[in-house]
Nucleic acid binder design. Sequence first.
DNA 1: GCTTGACCTGTAATGCATTCCATAAAATAA
DNA 2: TTATTTTATGGAATGCATTACAGGTCAAGC
Lengths: 321, 321
Amino acid sequence: MTNIQEIARLAGVSTTTVSRVINQHPYVNEAKRKEILKIIERLDYVPNSNAKSLKEGMTRIIGVLTGTYTTLSTSFIQAFNTSANKHGFNVMLFITNGDRQQELIALEMLRSKQLDALICLFRTNEWKVIESYTKYGPIVTWQRLVSDTIPSVFMDHYKGYTLGLEYLYAKGYRRIANVFSSKGLNTPERVRSYHDFADKYQLKANSFPDFHDKLTIYDGEEVARWWIGQNDRPDAIACSNDNVAAGLLTELRRAGFSAPGDVGILGFDNTELAHLLDLTTIHYPANKQAENAFYIILDMLGQPAPEVHTLEFELIERKST
Amino acid sequence: MTNIQEIARLAGVSTTTVSRVINQHPYVNEAKRKEILKIIERLDYVPNSNAKSLKEGMTRIIGVLTGTYTTLSTSFIQAFNTSANKHGFNVMLFITNGDRQQELIALEMLRSKQLDALICLFRTNEWKVIESYTKYGPIVTWQRLVSDTIPSVFMDHYKGYTLGLEYLYAKGYRRIANVFSSKGLNTPERVRSYHDFADKYQLKANSFPDFHDKLTIYDGEEVARWWIGQNDRPDAIACSNDNVAAGLLTELRRAGFSAPGDVGILGFDNTELAHLLDLTTIHYPANKQAENAFYIILDMLGQPAPEVHTLEFELIERKST
DNA sequence: GCTTGACCTGTAATGCATTCCATAAAATAA
DNA sequence: TTATTTTATGGAATGCATTACAGGTCAAGC
C-alpha cells in the first residue's frame, strides 16, 4: 500500500513537506508542490484515514441510534445526515430493534473513539446507563429529558397535543380517545395535555381507556377492532402518530366504517402516510429539529455552530376529521 | 487519555502482556491477568479503535449507499445491518438523494480505508466510475449488473414481473398498462417481460404508453390522473412498486373510483403499504437478499461466509385485483 | 541426562499521518 | 549594515495497539 513515506521518498522530500502539500499549508515551494502532487496523482495516493483519526483524536463520524425506521425518524435522519455532511461529518446508523446489546455497541463505539458523538432517537437501556457514556463524547436526544449531560432538542408535546385536541373540540368532537406511544417522556406530556384539556371542557365523564405503546400500522388496526367492538364509541381518536392513524383508518374501512363519518381520526407527525390517506395530522418539524440536534453536537465538539431554530407544531387539516 | 502503555506501566508489565489479556491470548500468568484486568477496570480503559483499525488495516464498517428511503430499501438495510452485526461489522449509511458528490464521499471513504466494503443500492454516478473504486475494497449491488468486479445479488425481475403479468392474465385482465421505475438494469428486464407476455397472448393491440421513472406515492397519483383522463382505459396497471400502487389507488379513490372495481392494481415489493391498503403485490425477499449481499462481502473480505440463499418472488394476492 | 514442547514475558518494529521544534535562506525593515 | 520577519524544509516525536521474534522457565518423554 502506498503511504506518505513512499511519496516523500519518490519526491525526495520529507513526509512533513508532503503532509503540508496535502493539507494545503503555505510554505511549500511551488515547484515541489507541483511535483509532489504529480506523484500523489500517479500513485493514486490518499491519506489513510485511520492514521489521521488516530492522530487527530476524532473520526468525524456521528452515530444515530434508532429503534426501528418509522417514517418520522427517517426524515429526521435524512435531515441530520444532510447537516452533518455539510460540515464534513458522516453518519453511522444503528438500528437496534429495541435490543439493549445493539444499543451498547453504539455506546461502546463512542467510548472507543470510533464515533465523535451520538444522537439517540430511541433507547432501550436506562437513561442512567446512557448518561454514563457522556464522558466519552456528546450524546444528544430528541426525547424530552431533563439532564445536564444529555441535551435534548425535544419539542413541547404538551403544546402540540393540545393544538390537536383544541382543534378536535372546535370541530365538535367531545368523546375523544387517546392512543399513546411508548413510555418516553413525551407521552406523559401528552397525557397531561389531555387531562388539562378534559378538565377545561369538563369532558371527564366521556373518558375512554388510554392506549399505550402503540406505534405501528398494526397497532392502529388493533385500535380499530377495539373501536368496532365498543357499544359506547368515541367520536374521535387522537393517535400517537400517522402510522397508527393509517392502520386505524384502513381497518375501519375494511369493516365498512369511514372517517370522519363514523369517527374523527387525528394523526401526528405529518408523514407521507398522512398525505396518502388524507389524514388530518400535526406537522412535526423533524427536519429543523435534526439540524438543531446537529448544531448542538457541533457546539459540544468545540466547533463553530449556527444558531438553533425555534420549532413549532402546526395543524394540517385534511379529510379524516 | 488512558492508553495501553499506562495500563502496562501500572501493572508493571509490557504492553504485549496487556494486549494479550485484552485479546484473550493464552500464555498469560493467571495472577497477572487478574491484576491487569483489575487495573483496566479501574481506569475504565478501552483500546482506541482507531489505533486498532490502523494496525489491522480494517475498520469493520461497511457502507450502504442509498438514494432515498423507500420502504423496500429500508427493509433491506435493516436485514443487512442485522447480518453485519452478527459478524461483528457495523453499517454506515449514506443517503445521497441522487447527489453525485455525496456518492463520491462514500466511495472515497472506501479508498481511504474508513470503510471495508460498500453496498450500492442506488447510484447516480456511472457504473464505470463506481467500478474504478473496486480496487479499494468490495463493492456489491442489488441491481442487475454484469460486471466482473462488482458482484450483484440481483433478482430475476423478468421472472418476477412475468409472475405478476400471468396472474393478471389469469384473472381476466387483458388491457394492462405498465409503470416502470428508474432506468436501472431491472427495468429493461421488466420491459422485456411485458413484451414477451404481450406476444404470447397477442395483446399487442391493447398496448398503452409505458411510464418510466415512477417510484413515489406522488408518481402514483400522477398515473391515476392520467388513467382518469383516458377514454380508452387500461383494465389493470402493473406498478413499479407499492408506493406507486398506493398513490395510484388512493388518488383514484379520491376521484370516486375503486380497485378492483374500475381497474386492477398490482404493486411490487410487498412492503407495509401493500398490507395497509390491501394491495395485491409481489413479494420481494429483501431480507434474504440483504443477507446474501453481506455474505458475498464477507467472502470477498477473505472471511468464512455462509452459503447464499436462493431467492424467489412470490405473488401475494390481496384485494386490489 | 538430554531433547522437546508447552508456557510465559518483553523488546522493538510496524501501521501511517501530523506537528513541534530546529535550522537556514531569503526578503524586508530599521 | 544589522535586525527582524517571512519562507522553506527536515528530524523526530506523537497518537496507540498489535505482533514477530527472541529469550527464558519448567515439566514430560525417551
